[in-house]
Each structure stands twice: as C-alpha cells, then as structure tokens.
Amino acid sequence: MIIKNYMSSECLTLKPNSTLAQARELMETRRVRQLPVVDAENRLVGILSKRDIYAASVSVLSKNYEREKKLIESHISVEEIMTRDVRTVSPNDDLASAALTLQEMRVGALPVVEDGKLIGIISNTDFLGIAVMLLEK
C-alpha cells in the first residue's frame, strides 16, 4: 500500500504572509486541523496546525479575550509561527511507514511532496478511513 492511493490531493494551503485570522477561518470553515504553507511556486515552506494558533493566541482568561484575539490574529502572519522543519513523504512511500512516522512524531498530518512541490497530504483522518475500510472487509 502506497501513499498516493490514499492521500488527499485536494489540499488546502496557506501563503507565508497569510494572517492567523485567515488561517483560523479556513480551518474552521473547512474543518481541518493543519494546513501546509507554500510559496508562489507551490514549494512547501512550513505547516501550521490549530495547536500552533492556540499557542500564539491570547488566553481565554483575558478580560478582553475576543477583542485581543482578533487584534493579535489579524497582525501575526503564518510565517511567524509555522513549523518550518516539516517531515514530508513522497507519493510512492509505504503507507505503514507514514503511519508510524505520524505516531512517533505525534503530528496530525504529513505533507506529500514530489519534485519539491506539494501534491497532497496524508492525515490521521485518512488513516482512520483506511482502518474502517480494512475492518469492514
């Protein structure tokens, strides 16, 4: 089993200069937890997770939480907090190896890169779907 047969090729992305507010909105409306960050040539330059946004956000205990959150998230760019050293996989990599990498690294997704360009993503959700498919056989 190889990654290209199970990855999500319809991959939402961000640009490095996108704001955290834009990232949060995209994650909430499209119900994803991580977004690859690509440059103008679609080369992967980082990845942003909901966890990254929460870590950079104001505390919910703040007296003016909503106002401060909007202010901070509209002024911080994705490139300021994204993870830059991203572990990637290629479309012909073994699926089991990718699953082990996700588990060992404790991350939710691995970008799929070919010839230096982002072509998809494989996530915990994809692996859950694979598990369901195998269990139903």
Results as ranks from 00 to 15, higher is better:
78 V>Y: 01
44 L>N: 01
58 V>D: 10
49 S>R: 02
65 Y>E: 09
57 S>K: 00
97 S>L: 12
79 E>A: 12
102 L>N: 10
57 S>I: 01
87 R>F: 13
53 I>G: 01
56 A>N: 04
60 V>C: 07
91 P>T: 13
73 E>W: 05
89 V>Q: 01
65 Y>V: 11
58 V>A: 06
78 V>W: 00
92 N>P: 02
54 Y>I: 01
98 A>D: 14
51 R>Q: 13
93 D>V: 12
79 E>W: 12
84 R>M: 10
95 L>A: 14
103 Q>I: 07
66 E>C: 11
42 N>M: 10
55 A>G: 07
64 N>H: 11
85 D>M: 02
99 A>M: 15
97 S>C: 10
43 R>Q: 12
83 T>L: 01
48 L>W: 01
58 V>R: 11
62 S>P: 00
72 I>F: 06
46 G>C: 05
98 A>Q: 13
68 E>S: 07
46 G>Y: 00
101 T>A: 15
84 R>C: 08
87 R>A: 07
67 R>S: 11
45 V>T: 05
80 E>I: 00
65 Y>L: 15
67 R>E: 15
73 E>G: 03
52 D>W: 01
43 R>I: 01
72 I>D: 00
54 Y>H: 06
83 T>S: 03
96 A>V: 15
52 D>E: 08
62 S>Y: 09
85 D>T: 05
73 E>F: 12
51 R>D: 10
78 V>L: 05
42 N>R: 12
100 L>N: 15
46 G>F: 03
102 L>F: 12
68 E>H: 09
56 A>Y: 03
43 R>C: 12
77 S>K: 09
87 R>Q: 08
48 L>F: 04
56 A>F: 07
78 V>F: 02
56 A>G: 05
49 S>E: 09
80 E>L: 03
67 R>L: 11
103 Q>W: 05
78 V>K: 04
93 D>G: 14
48 L>A: 06
74 S>G: 11
56 A>R: 05
82 M>S: 04
94 D>T: 07
84 R>H: 11
52 D>F: 02
52 D>C: 03
61 L>C: 11
101 T>R: 13
100 L>H: 15
45 V>S: 00
61 L>G: 14
90 S>H: 06
71 L>Y: 15
86 V>A: 04
56 A>H: 02
51 R>W: 01
50 K>L: 05
75 H>P: 02
74 S>H: 05
83 T>H: 02
59 S>K: 07
98 A>Y: 10
102 L>S: 04
67 R>V: 06
84 R>G: 09
98 A>V: 08
102 L>W: 07
48 L>T: 01
89 V>G: 03
77 S>M: 12
63 K>T: 10
50 K>E: 09
84 R>L: 08
51 R>T: 15
45 V>L: 06
71 L>P: 00
58 V>W: 10
60 V>T: 14
90 S>Y: 06
68 E>K: 15
43 R>W: 06
54 Y>E: 10
49 S>W: 02
61 L>Q: 02
55 A>R: 09
82 M>L: 10
59 S>R: 06
75 H>S: 07
99 A>G: 10
45 V>D: 00
77 S>F: 11
95 L>Q: 03
102 L>G: 08
44 L>S: 02
57 S>F: 05
82 M>N: 03
92 N>T: 14
46 G>D: 02
85 D>P: 04
90 S>V: 10
67 R>M: 14
73 E>R: 06
56 A>S: 13
78 V>R: 04
89 V>S: 11
63 K>M: 13
49 S>V: 02
70 K>Y: 00
78 V>C: 13
